[in-house]
């Protein structure tokens, strides 16, 4: 049993690690340490759910949903009152430096967009990524995040308003 699980986990890890890590990097606004921790937790979740997963052929979709929800949950934890207080009083607890900024240094607008993304509240950040980068419909986002379609629509509108307030143009398709 353990061997079979290990093989399945290893196979899934090999096939999907890059995609999961990239999703985490994206939601974490380029913070590689944070993305590493969330990627780890995603595959631990996979390990826990392996015996109950009926369709391994759609594991990619399952991982997308779990990664997105887990990232959202971690982002919200990071913004909790307790963590905010810790960061306020302890310099060592400040939000981790973004480790991929160097990568974006030559692309001014891309770096600015990533900084704008980091400034958004967690739910708006995740919903906007799903919409703009993955082309998901509001129905698909609502299903993946267990939210109502109306609430997703509200989050998208709020996110776009925040983005515009930061000096960007947001096209109609994204609003």
């Amino acid at each position: 049993m353990a061997n079979r699980q290990r093989l399945t986990l290893e196979t899934c890890y090999r096939l999907h690690r890059e995609r999961v890590f990239r999703l985490c990097l994206r939601y974490g606004g380029g913070d590689a340490s944070w993305a590493e921790d969330v990627t780890h937790d995603v595959f631990i979740k996979l390990l826990e759910h392996l015996p109950r997963l009926e369709r391994l052929d759609d594991i990619g979709g399952w991982l997308y949903r779990v990664t997105t929800n887990l990232a959202l949950s971690r982002l919200r934890q990071r913004r909790s009152v307790r963590m905010a207080l810790r960061r306020l009083f302890s310099p060592s607890e400040r939000e981790a430096q973004v480790s991929t900024d160097l990568l974006l240094m030559q692309r001014e607008q891309a770096a600015r967009a990533m900084a704008t993304l980091r400034a958004l509240p967690p739910r708006e950040r995740v919903v906007l990524c799903m919409k703009v980068l993955d082309g998901k419909s509001q129905r698909e986002i609502a299903d993946a995040l267990s939210m109502s379609e109306g609430f997703v629509s509200k989050l998208v509108a709020r996110a776009c308003a925040h983005v515009r307030a930061l000096g960007w143009e947001v096209s109609d398709g994204e609003a």
């Binding site: 890590f21 990239r22 990097l25 994206r26 991929t100 891309a110 967009a113 703009v132 960007w168 994204e174």
Partner: peptide, 21 residues
Amino acid sequence: RHDFGAALREADRALERFGMP
């Protein structure tokens, strides 16, 4: 004003190239 969607996609492509170290 720059297009946010285009800039974000460019950033995402850069993250894709960064890959998993």
